[in-house]
Design a protein around this nucleic acid. Sequence first.
DNA 1: TAGATGTATTGAAATGTTTCGATATGTTCT
DNA 2: AGAACATATCGAAACATTTCAATACATCTA
Lengths: 91, 91
Amino acid sequence: MELKKVEKISKALADPNRLQILKSLHKKQACLYCSDINELIDLTQPSISHHLKQLTEAELIIAEKEGRNVKYTMNNKMIDQYVSFLLALKV
Amino acid sequence: MELKKVEKISKALADPNRLQILKSLHKKQACLYCSDINELIDLTQPSISHHLKQLTEAELIIAEKEGRNVKYTMNNKMIDQYVSFLLALKV
DNA sequence: TAGATGTATTGAAATGTTTCGATATGTTCT
DNA sequence: AGAACATATCGAAACATTTCAATACATCTA
């Protein structure tokens, strides 16, 4: 995995609200919609949209349009790749 | 692992220079001194000191004073803990 | 097609991070 | 003790991120 990509993923993970979103996504064991997240986190809609974009661009989550909603699901594969990079750092 | 800690580690990993330091530490399969890092990375001494502090405070590396030098070693344990948190996010 | 609903974008203020020069601190050597 | 060396801290400039109000865009429903 490219260092540039590792940096992007790390940045995406370096925010309490985004970590909260990921934890919720895990807890639900399923997908989430923007509106769900609005209820979980005390931020305005544009801020949440911004955070979801960061996570999506890092490919930690996958966004799928469903009518006028967007469905988000965890991208397990990307987590595995990131984890592999980290484990390879060990001495 | 606390979310606050995850955030701190992620932040420490979210910088190209710090990733470079970690990769070098791995490549050497041993420890590094500040002066080694000065040769690897094109930054001034205060900047490198700042980055090493971030990594040390995140406990990704361990700093040990050796006379007037400081020896840095990878903290494999912390990487494992961080990785465990990430894997637990998967759905 | 018009209004309602869900999400994205824009622009700007507030806040946080990175970087450096200058300088301080601590350690070794003579 | 004093010079030389290694690392840390301070203060400020440059840069990046977070947040929100306002507004745009896209889709559904009546």
